[in-house]
Design a protein around this nucleic acid. Sequence first.
DNA 1: CGACGCCTTGACTCAGGTCAAATAACGTGG
DNA 2: CCACGTTATTTGACCTGAGTCAAGGCGTCG
Lengths: 227, 227
Amino acid sequence: MSLACETCAVRESAACSVLDHDEREALSKAGRTRELTRGEVLFAAGDEDAACATLVTGALKVCSYDEDGNERILALIHPSGFIGEMFAPFAAHDVVALTKSTLCVFAKADMQRALDDHPKLTRALLRRSQEDLYWARQLLALGSGRSATEQVGTFLLALAQAASDSPCHPSQRFELPLTRGEMASMLGLTIETVSRAMTTLEKQGAIRRHGARGIELVDPARLEGSV
Amino acid sequence: MSLACETCAVRESAACSVLDHDEREALSKAGRTRELTRGEVLFAAGDEDAACATLVTGALKVCSYDEDGNERILALIHPSGFIGEMFAPFAAHDVVALTKSTLCVFAKADMQRALDDHPKLTRALLRRSQEDLYWARQLLALGSGRSATEQVGTFLLALAQAASDSPCHPSQRFELPLTRGEMASMLGLTIETVSRAMTTLEKQGAIRRHGARGIELVDPARLEGSV
DNA sequence: CGACGCCTTGACTCAGGTCAAATAACGTGG
DNA sequence: CCACGTTATTTGACCTGAGTCAAGGCGTCG
């Protein structure tokens, strides 16, 4: 199936947005769309010749598992994000859908060719990769020094940011794309600790909860520096 | 000062190794070498127009600080590693020398131009960036589930790997490039905990210590799965 | 020799993990 | 729409691993 770039939700923001119309048209012939439902695995760690993909709608998680099978989430992918190591012989981590998602998938070899043909594209991916690196390091820094409640607070703020379409304002009310367990495994905490942290934040008046997933930011400033 | 690419220690492995002789010669005109001693700051977080650099000899750390001024090390840079966000308006983190180091430094604008001129170079940096991302995520995964002793053990193994010149065998005996405090801040632990973990590992017969920094791997297998 | 910085060790504390149970949200089929 | 089973979330009680505080050892450099 060919791709409908014209109606693509991330036409303006994905890596391929740096291509002009004809180039993009050519690239789209090599790709195909794919839909995933929550929990479906896009790539599994160790896959040889895993493909590459741009996320169009939905959300993905990148995760690894320790020897007891406990999941650790290493990154979230939001729309217009790119996944796939073009240079490694096999995938390093699992990539799994958090919600119903739409992707634009390319075989590794086709992507390699596209990189050769379009330096602009390579450059765009380099930029994206450096941003991913930045976020991975932010997540690393988040773990340090702070109490569990602070970590959860900061993380909620980051999710609010991501949930918002406007670039720098967090959305004031949003639905968590993650279960408690997933939040816990991003922060290296337990489900219970995350749950308690949310209760604490609500008692402090920093947030209000609406059902299990709905979050309203009441006092965002307090999220950064609490307890 | 111009660069002596001919005698460069990382001539074969750094990003610029993908350039042919003339291209490299041209690039070297834009760069200059710089020497750092332990503790010297290469870039500080927030620097506008921070440059880019390839590490030739020595070792660097990438770090951030929490509001109490505690350092958190986010990454180590080894020879032939590349540092510098070409696309961000300012540096995200501090980069500091761990040991006497030699670098090959380029102004951001010159590097941008080089990327435009040499798609090969962009590609090489993309590859490197993806590797950095992989290592950042490995460090993230290391924190999860494991006891302090396991973390230190795994980390020592990684350092042994890095200290070795051969690609896949850890060096059997090496000197730690990091103080206890720096190890602690990479793992999100305290100095005391790291020290106790090393004592435990030695008691278990996994390692032997030679002075404060010398490490001999006695039973590497035990480092991965201990206590 | 003395001072300073780094490392180790011990005693004590506490944040967060573990175990267990109650409650709330959700989906499914009748 | 409701009853029910399933899964996610919250809460409580208790325990432990790692942090904190404090002291002492070891090297190194001036």
